[in-house]
Each structure stands twice: as structure tokens, then as C-alpha cells.
Simulated scan of single mutants.
Amino acid sequence: MANYRYWVGILSCSLLFSLVFLGQQSGAFGSTDHEHHGETGLLLFVIPGMIASYLSSKKRILCPLLGALYALPLCLAIRHFWLTPFYSFWQELAYATSAVFWCVFGAMLALFARSLLQIFQQCHRRERQ
């Protein structure tokens, strides 16, 4: 069962990462201005990381990382061949690498929230006793 949840985490992250990446690049999310300047839209990549971390049984950081890295070549290929590229390949690769960072950061935030929730529950149990 744990192996099944391992792959669910990777596949969910890969799918959600691809959707957010292609949505960002096509202009579906945020502005249609095609300039890479301090975009807050990169924060949307936190969501696939958090969901994949929640769906993974163990290796809650590795699954979102692998999912994002598996989706990255597909996203860059779709962006390069089917969508009109506005930047060089290296600029797109830098943008995609920062997207992977934010995805893994989302997984870390989910782990942090989970540990805070466990600590809160333990303190609450001690107060009841």
C-alpha cells in the first residue's frame, strides 16, 4: 500500500505541476504580460507540492521533487513546440527551476503544518489528563 501512495504522490504532483506551469505560461493565471519579473504567480507552485506531500505515505519531500522533475521536460517541450516562446531556452529553464523550488517548498510547508498540528494535539491531550 505504501508503494501505491508513493506513486500517487509523484503522479499527482506531476499532473498538477504541469497544469500550473502551462497555465502560467499561456496566461490563464494572472496577467497576460509575458515578462518574467518578480511574479507572485510562482507561489501557485506551492499547491502541487502540498497536495503531493499529503498524498504520499512516506518520503513526503522526495515525491513532490520527483513529480516536478518528471513534469519539467514535458512542460518545457510543450512550451517550446506548441506555445509561442517569448524567451530563450535558458530563461525558460531558470523559470522552471524556480517553479520546482516552490513546489518542494510547498511540500516542506505541508510537513511543517503537519508537525505543528501533531504538537498541538499532544499538548491538548496533556491538558485533558
Rank of each mutant, 00 (worst) to 15 (best):
K59H: 14
L69R: 00
M108D: 00
Q91L: 13
R125Y: 08
L111S: 15
I78K: 06
M50P: 12
F45C: 03
C123W: 02
R60W: 09
Q129A: 10
Q122V: 09
R125V: 10
L42V: 12
L66W: 10
L62S: 11
F45R: 04
Y95F: 11
A71M: 02
W102I: 02
G41M: 10
R128I: 14
C63M: 15
Y54C: 08
R128P: 00
A28N: 05
H34R: 12
V100S: 08
Y54M: 03
W82S: 08
L66S: 05
G38W: 13
L116P: 00
E35W: 06
V104A: 12
L43D: 01
M108P: 00
F86M: 11
Q122T: 11
C103L: 12
G67S: 09
A107R: 04
A107S: 14
Q25A: 08
G49S: 07
S88P: 01
I78P: 09
R79G: 12
L109W: 02
S88F: 05
T40G: 03
F29W: 15
L22I: 14
W90I: 09
L76M: 15
V104L: 11
G38E: 11
T40W: 14
G67H: 12
A113Y: 07
C123Y: 03
L65H: 01
I78N: 04
W102P: 01
R79V: 00
F29L: 15
I47N: 03
E35C: 06
I47V: 15
L65N: 02
G38M: 04
M108Y: 13
R114Y: 11
I51T: 02
L72W: 05
R126H: 08
L93D: 05
